[in-house]
Simulated scan of single mutants.
Amino acid sequence: MLWEALVAPFAEFGFLRRALVACLALSLAAPPLGVFLMLRRMSLTGDALSHGILPGVALGFLLAGLSPPALAAGGLAAGLLVALGAGALSRATGGREDAVLAALYLSALAAGVALISWRGSPVELTQLLFGSVLGVDDAALLLAGGAASAALLFLALAWRPLALECFDPGFGRSVGLRGGWWHLGFLALVVLTLVASFQAVGTLMAVGLMMLPVVAARHWARGLGGMVLAAVGLAVLASVLGLLGSYHADVPTGPAITLCAAGLWAVSLLLGPVDGLWARWRPPRHLEG
């Protein structure tokens, strides 16, 4: 029974193996980016960008159908436009960047859904919004692997500057750290990773694999390195369980993976040793007995 439930689907179906490899690659890259988003108090920025890529994906769909290169190029252009446009408009008008970002991503989301609904079928709309294991072909797999490799390489080079920006930006400026350039590169990698994720988990659910394991990981580690490792491990577990749940329950992969990640967050919130509810309610050891 365990073999049939846990191993047989991946052993029998090539499309599930491709989806698994893509999700594992993204699980290595997305959570570390999510950790820095959380530390910079930009957790909702990832959600806004995942919605912001939709009109570019929709235009790619209208021009070339479900072609991964066209969808990825359109999504990347739209995501970068939303990310950079929010900062530029807030500086030009003196408004808050989060308010401008909210206006842009809501407009982008509505435009993207309208464009896909105009020319696409309900099945194609569901696949683009919520993901499908059938959509992870060789081109999508290469995109996921390339995005994950680029993100990990960037983080290896930018780990110290990004950490300084999070914990001591004043010291970073005093030593000549060009935080603005690192920030732009970081946002570009976030957009690229979200674009690479949508084939498997959909544009609306792409941020789930980036942020939910991170929120859960803070209950298992205090240091930056430990939090990244915990987030990656939780993302891998959520990906495997979500793909199995999608296969057995016949539901879209995006919601299945996101729900599994949410379940792991709930368990972490209850039982995690760092600020978990059980750790807070349990009496100190010297008072036990």
Rank of each mutant, 00 (worst) to 15 (best):
L142E: 07
L71P: 13
G276A: 03
G289V: 12
M227E: 15
V190G: 04
S246E: 10
A70G: 08
A11D: 15
L16N: 03
L164Y: 14
L287W: 14
W181I: 10
V175L: 11
L66H: 11
L177R: 03
L109R: 08
I116R: 05
P255T: 04
P55Q: 13
C23W: 02
R218L: 02
M42Y: 00
G272V: 05
C260W: 10
L229K: 10
S132D: 15
L66F: 11
I53Y: 03
S268V: 04
P273C: 10
A72S: 14
G226V: 04
R173E: 14
A196M: 02
S246I: 08
L153Y: 01
F130D: 09
L229D: 05
L184K: 09
I257W: 06
D250E: 13
L84S: 12
R17G: 04
G185S: 11
S132V: 06
G135C: 01
L106V: 12
A73Y: 10
P169G: 12
E4K: 09
G226A: 01
L244P: 09
I257K: 03
L264M: 10
R119E: 11
A196C: 06
A217I: 08
R160P: 10
S132T: 07
D168R: 11
M211T: 07
D47H: 14
G176I: 11
G202E: 01
R41H: 13
A256D: 02
L63H: 03
S50M: 05
G254M: 06
V7M: 10
L270W: 15
L243Q: 07
W182D: 04
L243I: 06
G65Y: 13
L49T: 03
V201R: 00
V191Q: 02
L209I: 10
D275S: 13
S239A: 15
L24P: 00
C166S: 15
L104Q: 00
A11M: 12
S239K: 06
L37H: 00
F13R: 14
G56N: 05
L63G: 04
F10R: 03
P55T: 14
G172M: 09
A64T: 04
G14M: 07
L153C: 09
V175A: 01
A230H: 07
A262F: 11
P122S: 09
G226P: 06
L184N: 10
L62P: 11
G272W: 04
A144Q: 06
G208V: 07
P122N: 09
V240T: 03
G176C: 12
A217E: 02
P273I: 11
L192R: 03
A279I: 09
A83M: 06
P68M: 05
F13V: 05
D250Q: 14
F186A: 07
M227W: 02
R222E: 09
V82F: 07
A114Q: 07
R91N: 11
R173H: 12
A73L: 15
L141D: 02
L129H: 07
L76N: 07
L212K: 01
A5E: 06
A88K: 14
G79S: 05
L187W: 12
E288A: 15
G65V: 12
